[in-house]
Design a protein around this nucleic acid. Structure first.
Lengths: 227, 227
DNA sequence: ATATGCCAGATTGTTTACAATCCAGCGTGC
DNA sequence: GCACGCTGGATTGTAAACAATCTGGCATAT
């Protein structure tokens, strides 16, 4: 037992490691993921590596082309537009449902998280802030009480993060905290349509903030996986 | 060459055969899909069968449980509710986009398809009608010009079909033709919100039409795959 | 000098063999 | 008679061997 067995099964462990590596910008778009290298890093055979890669491919965070292996996905400008448009549509719908279904307790927890976010922002803790800001969106998705839409948002939000990683290497493009507060206020007031419109505007602002320009490479795969 | 090679690669052929088998209610929910049986039926090794099964699992049309193989998915009543809710949300968003982006030619093609549908209905050609009615929804998704939302609708619509297969063995629950026409009329008039509301009502009617009661089993796997 | 063709190493795709797990049927003991 | 546990066949999970394909460098010809 080599100390990395924490109750997650093997597949999940490998998936998460690679996925997190992408989300934290250690694995940048275009990076190649050779099967044998992953086999050695995770001490498994190619069957399981291939299965995980296929799953990552289905989630659109890696490209899987026949006979030439897996690479971290590199969304084009066109795709970027489509992804953000789809996200606005889905997340607006989610906000409407969440406004209908959230309880008083839900709003309490939501406000508490907003304060954490606020604090992290004022302390200039960029990584923590980004993480919390992203969690805000996923938390609202939970309040909608629809696991299917929640899964769709998770998938599409990860693709957005990939895009931000591609086009904003230093991580400037984060959520505006004030806008989060306005959205929650609208929701608490029971104004579903208003909250949906605010959310769409919020995501539109996020999209407008990313400027289309790639980033830089080079480091060992092991380092970039955080191992 | 045994006459089933039509330019599709092997994976796609197997995927389609199983998927179509499910959509046409030859493979009913709960049916087990043993790997070896599929290997022999399609003359491939277990690797490719396993890959295809994983893809079907990701699309939520089959359940894949560790150490106990693949079975056709059997959505619960709860899931049914969630799936239809998600579909209303996504398809309403799609209709709004489609109303904005459709050209005059698009509407022409749409109307032509509506006539085919109308005709098939009046001739009591239930299978053709059901196929056309389903195609109507996918065609609108194309008009939205967003491949991501289109893919989501495809996935969720197939889950709806599975539910209908589960709870309406004789296939009564189909789309009302008149409602399709109203939706198109609204779209042509440029009334995105109206069209969205009509679409939601249309899908709600579809959901209300399905009564929750399972169906019957037994026949060989080969027959049920149409081979 | 550039372009073309070819060969060797590397990488992926497929098949097969082996190990682990599950499940149904049977027997034993209470 | 019923519950429990065992055992053998069947089925899935994993790993390793083999085949096919791609990539990059070198030689050759124009």
């Amino acid at each position: 037992m080599s100390g990395q067995d924490r109750g997650l099964d093997t597949d999940e462990r490998i998936y998460r490691t690679i996925f997190d590596g992408i989300m934290q910008q250690r694995l940048t778009p275009g990076t190649k993921l050779p099967e044998i290298a992953l086999c050695e890093l995770f001490s498994v055979s190619r069957s399981v590596v291939r299965r995980v890669l296929q799953r990552l491919a289905h989630d659109h965070v890696v490209d899987l082309r026949p006979n030439r292996g897996a690479t971290i996905a590199t969304p084009s400008a066109q795709e970027t537009r489509e992804i953000f448009e789809a996200r606005r549509a889905i997340e607006a719908a989610i906000v409407r449902l969440a406004t209908r279904n959230a309880t008083a307790d839900d709003f309490l927890a939501l406000r508490r998280q907003l304060e954490d976010e606020h604090e992290a922002m004022h302390r200039f803790e960029q990584p923590a802030w980004a993480r919390l800001a992203s969690a805000f969106h996923l938390r609202i998705a939970k309040l909608a009480r629809n696991p299917i839409l929640e899964a769709y948002l998770k998938e599409i939000a990860s693709r957005c993060s990939l895009i931000v990683a591609l086009y904003e290497p230093w991580g400037n493009a984060s959520c505006e905290h004030a806008e989060h507060e306005e959205i929650v206020a609208c929701m608490e007031a029971g104004d579903a349509e208003g909250a949906a419109r605010l959310m769409e505007a919020h995501l539109q602002a996020l999209e407008n903030n990313i400027s289309l320009r790639p980033s830089d490479p080079q480091k060992t795969l092991k380092q970039r996986l955080g191992l």
